[in-house]
Amino acid sequence: MKIPFDPACLAPFIAFLFKLWARSIRYEIDGDWDGFLALNRQAKPLILGLWHGELFPATAFGYSRCDRLVTFVSQSKDGEVIARVIERLGHVTVRGSSSRGGVRALLKAKRIMEKENRIGVITLDGPRGPRHKSKDGVIFLAQRVKGVIVPLRAFPKRAKIFNSWDKFVLPMPFTKCRICLGEPMEVTREKLNPEVMAGERKRLEARMRELGRDHE
């Protein structure tokens, strides 16, 4: 008889392993991280925007430096495991992505950010790409919360790069990792029609490329 196995039951072990891994990494920060945290304490809505391929080192950095995040996780089975792990790191998750449940997740994140003064975290090109092409969600959310988008890039010195659509980066334990933070991006207050949205995405993508110019 086949015994069903729920991979989500591994979340406690995965979270424990992730915490050890994250604590071993030595972060070097380019940008005013403490200033962003100070803005958050003053109830300024902030959204960290990152590429899907840098999710591991960026999440590890977030775990080690901030306990007031709300992050987006897809509604897939893999997403259930990831959500449980992230919640064990002390953060809040909302379930949804650009391909499924996105609007509902964005509105839920907005309520959490406003009620609990948490920093939003979103993978700009996730969950399916194309790589380094921003989706609309982060622009929509930033406008609705009247907040700013803080571009974030993560560059581990030693890492395994997978042959996946996002070129997923797995930092080696005990490596150095440079975290690059861009200037906060104020989004337009215009109505987000397709033309305006496309322009805002291009502005954000340009800022992300500039952060990676000297590291990729």
Rank of each mutant, 00 (worst) to 15 (best):
L55I: 12
A60V: 05
R88F: 02
A43N: 15
G96C: 09
S74W: 11
G101K: 09
E216G: 15
L37W: 09
D125G: 11
F174A: 11
G101T: 13
E216M: 14
L17C: 15
T59I: 14
F5C: 05
E116Y: 12
S98I: 06
P171C: 10
S98L: 05
E210D: 15
P127E: 14
A43F: 14
G62K: 12
V81N: 08
K110M: 05
V103N: 11
E116G: 02
L89T: 00
D30L: 13
K160R: 15
V121Q: 02
L211Q: 04
E190V: 05
A105P: 13
A142E: 02
R203I: 15
K157P: 02
K133N: 13
N40H: 08
E87S: 02
E116V: 10
F36A: 07
F13R: 13
A142V: 03
L181C: 08
A83T: 04
A159G: 02
R68Y: 04
D6Q: 13
K108M: 09
A109C: 08
L141S: 00
R111S: 14
L181W: 00
K160C: 09
I122W: 06
G129M: 01
L170G: 00
G147S: 04
L39M: 13
L55C: 10
L50A: 10
P45E: 05
E200I: 11
L192H: 12
S99A: 09
A142C: 11
G35K: 03
T188E: 08
P12R: 07
E116H: 01
K44F: 09
V85I: 04
R128A: 11
G79L: 00
P130S: 08
A43Y: 11
E28K: 11
R100D: 06
C9Q: 15
R100I: 04
W33S: 07
R118C: 00
R41F: 09
F168C: 04
I179K: 08
V138G: 03
N117K: 04
S64G: 10
K77R: 13
G31M: 02
E216T: 15
A105M: 09
S98E: 13
V92S: 06
K146T: 03
R41C: 11
G126R: 00
N117R: 10
R144D: 02
K115E: 14
M208I: 01
D125H: 10
F16E: 10
W21M: 02
T71H: 05
R100E: 06
S64R: 15
F18D: 01
S98Q: 05
F140I: 11
E205M: 04
F5N: 01
T175G: 01
I112K: 05
F16S: 13
G212P: 01
R88N: 06
V85E: 12
K115H: 14
W51G: 02
S99I: 12
